[in-house]
Simulated assay, not measured.
Amino acid sequence: MFELNFWPLIGIPVVVLGFALRFNPLMVVTIAGIATGWAVNLDIITLLQTFGEKFMNSRQLASFILILPVIALLERYGLQQHAKNWIAKIKSATSARILALYFIVRECSAALGLLSLGGQAQTVRPLLAPMALGAATNKYGELPKPIKDMISAHAAAVDNIAMFFGEDIFIAFGAVLLMDAFLKENGIAGIEPLHIGLWAIPTAIAALIIHLFRLSRLEAKIALAVAAHKQQEAI
């Protein structure tokens, strides 16, 4: 009878314990990898080769680290304030319209594989959220923190949802290729990445319609929150 070997899973409790004890994340992941390699009887040379191969395959992740100081420098010199001032000059701009426009652009660009065109660090925090806040401030005056947090949360959600449903249309996206490989490994033939991408289009359209409907109600929600805040201040 086939007997399961759970030793290769030893890296999981190592990671959980290391993070729970707030050890250095890099050290925790390294130790977890070494423990897993030991559990599957990898020699030290093969283990080092595996570490190097995985690092090289994921080296593009390091580009995200380079973005942070650039964004911090731009914010230091007033990027958010300039975004607010610029959007305040457009009288017809509202928070909902700005977020809806970004949602459409973000989902369409993700469908074309332009995943790095937006993002939380490089677009939402320094540009999108300040623009949405600037439009609301221009219309209702100075906003209390709970309303600002609500608008910022909607800005973050717009980016996440648009990218999540848009990227599945791009046939070279990792998840699409993973599904294609999984189907072929299990003997399900006749399904290509193009088919998966085409079937993702109805879901993306549904997500677009649903979220645009949610955003259409955002302005009324902001107005009610502002009115409630002013009424509370009057009391």
Score class of each variant (00 low, 15 high):
residue 37 G to R: 01
residue 135 A to T: 06
residue 137 T to W: 00
residue 112 L to S: 12
residue 130 P to E: 14
residue 168 D to Q: 15
residue 206 A to Q: 01
residue 41 N to W: 04
residue 223 A to K: 06
residue 18 G to H: 09
residue 119 G to D: 02
residue 202 P to T: 07
residue 139 K to S: 14
residue 57 N to L: 13
residue 171 I to P: 07
residue 199 W to F: 06
residue 109 S to L: 09
residue 141 G to V: 08
residue 208 L to M: 13
residue 154 H to S: 14
residue 102 Y to S: 14
residue 167 E to W: 06
residue 142 E to D: 15
residue 13 P to I: 13
residue 24 N to P: 07
residue 10 I to W: 04
residue 71 I to S: 01
residue 79 L to F: 02
residue 3 E to S: 08
residue 110 A to E: 11
residue 169 I to C: 15
residue 167 E to I: 10
residue 60 Q to G: 09
residue 51 F to M: 08
residue 118 G to F: 09
residue 110 A to M: 12
residue 70 V to F: 13
residue 120 Q to I: 07
residue 130 P to Y: 07
residue 84 K to T: 14
residue 201 I to Y: 09
residue 167 E to L: 09
residue 123 T to P: 02
residue 74 L to A: 08
residue 153 A to C: 04
residue 108 C to I: 06
residue 192 E to G: 04
residue 81 Q to A: 14
residue 223 A to H: 08
residue 1 M to C: 08
residue 96 A to I: 00
residue 137 T to P: 01
residue 98 I to E: 14
residue 217 R to L: 15
residue 208 L to A: 10
residue 119 G to S: 09
residue 20 A to N: 02
residue 209 I to W: 05
residue 223 A to G: 00
residue 100 A to M: 09
residue 205 I to N: 11
residue 232 Q to E: 15
residue 140 Y to C: 12
residue 151 I to A: 13
residue 139 K to W: 12
residue 78 G to P: 00
residue 187 G to T: 10
residue 131 M to Q: 07
residue 55 F to G: 05
residue 156 A to P: 06
residue 96 A to K: 05
residue 171 I to T: 15
residue 36 T to C: 05
residue 217 R to N: 15
residue 143 L to Q: 15
residue 232 Q to I: 12
residue 48 L to N: 02
residue 231 Q to L: 15
residue 13 P to T: 09
residue 137 T to K: 07
residue 111 A to T: 08
residue 50 T to Y: 07
residue 83 A to Y: 00
residue 156 A to M: 12
residue 156 A to G: 05
residue 203 T to P: 02
residue 209 I to V: 05
residue 177 L to E: 04
residue 110 A to P: 02
residue 138 N to D: 08
residue 40 V to C: 03
residue 7 W to C: 02
residue 196 I to Q: 07
residue 191 I to P: 12
residue 207 A to R: 03
residue 51 F to Q: 12
residue 45 I to A: 06
residue 16 V to C: 10
residue 154 H to D: 11
residue 191 I to K: 01
residue 55 F to A: 13
residue 122 Q to F: 06
